[in-house]
């Protein structure tokens, strides 16, 4: 499928570059509808190898790249459910998003996240799936999940550990603080920092360079450089599902959904 126009995302392939645009208001929160369209994208990505060398993922929204999981939907769908039903629903969602992210991670295409504004939680996990992150200098990166009594559930810790040193991984997880693009580049999360409003242009320029190299060599290099931490990803699903049934999680979700605070992602 060379083109797709969905409610939450769209993509097109032109001149060897697949561009996936995220456009679900307010900030590309990942809920069931986005997941379904990401699954269509993952299938298309498997078939895109003959038409494209590079995939660029970006947001069309001024608010940012992606604010993570749709916590309002999560709260609405899980509040008050018996433990086993809650686990089953969460496990289904998490397993499906892992399948999508693993497909993007393992794609022979080189993948670039062009990040601007907010890149939090599941949004950061989506960016971490990509081979390169090009960030607008106004971008911010954060794993705020512990405030909810959870760990990141879309593959965040294994992929963060794959790329960064433990000092940064623990700092991000245990404090829930956000990093700006300059800091993110200094610690090795971001490969290039763009001027304000220029991340997509820079990502496209990077894609043009990457296209010049032999596809088989590029795919072999990627496989060698970036193994998928499969065992840790499976562990993450188990830990996440177990934690999700804690009373603190429902309370944390409720607090977030009902919050009128200026920085509701902080505990």
């Amino acid at each position: 499928m060379r083109n797709f126009q969905g409610k939450t995302l769209s993509w097109k392939i032109e001149s060897g570059v697949l561009e996936l645009a995220l456009h679900r208001e307010p900030c590309n929160e990942i809920g069931l509808e986005t997941l379904q369209e990401l699954e269509v994208f993952a299938e298309a990505l498997k078939e895109a190898q003959s038409d494209a060398s590079v995939a660029v993922i970006y947001s069309t929204l001024a608010s940012g790249f992606c604010a993570g999981a749709d916590l309002r939907e999560t709260y609405r769908l899980t509040q008050g459910l018996p433990r086993q039903e809650k686990i089953a629903g969460v496990r289904d969602f998490i397993t499906r998003i892992h399948a999508v992210f693993n497909t993007i991670d393992a794609s022979p295409l080189v993948t670039i996240a062009a990040v601007d504004g907010v890149c939090f939680g599941g949004g950061l996990e989506l960016a971490l799936v990509c081979d390169l992150i090009v960030a607008d200098r106004m971008a911010r990166f954060c794993f705020p999940e512990l405030r909810l009594g959870l760990i990141p559930g879309f593959g965040g810790i294994p992929r963060l550990k794959r790329d960064l040193g433990n000092a940064v991984v623990r700092d991000l997880l245990f404090t829930g603080r956000s990093l700006n693009a300059t800091k993110a580049q200094a610690v090795g999360l971001v490969s290039q920092v763009a001027a304000e409003g220029e991340a997509l242009r820079l990502a496209r320029s990077t894609a043009e360079q990457i296209k010049k190299f032999d596809p088989n060599t590029r795919a072999a290099a990627k496989k060698f450089l970036k193994p998928i931490p499969e065992q840790e990803l499976r562990q993450e699903i188990e830990i996440f599902c177990e934690l999700f049934t804690q009373p603190a999680v429902e309370a944390g979700l409720r607090k977030f959904v009902e919050s009128t605070e200026a920085l509701p992602y902080l505990p």
Binding site: C27, S63, G117, V118, M138, A262, L263, Y265
Partner: peptide, 8 residues
């Protein structure tokens, strides 16, 4: 400003 603008 809202929460996203506070981050900005």
């Amino acid at each position: 400003i809202n929460s996203l603008q506070a981050l900005e």
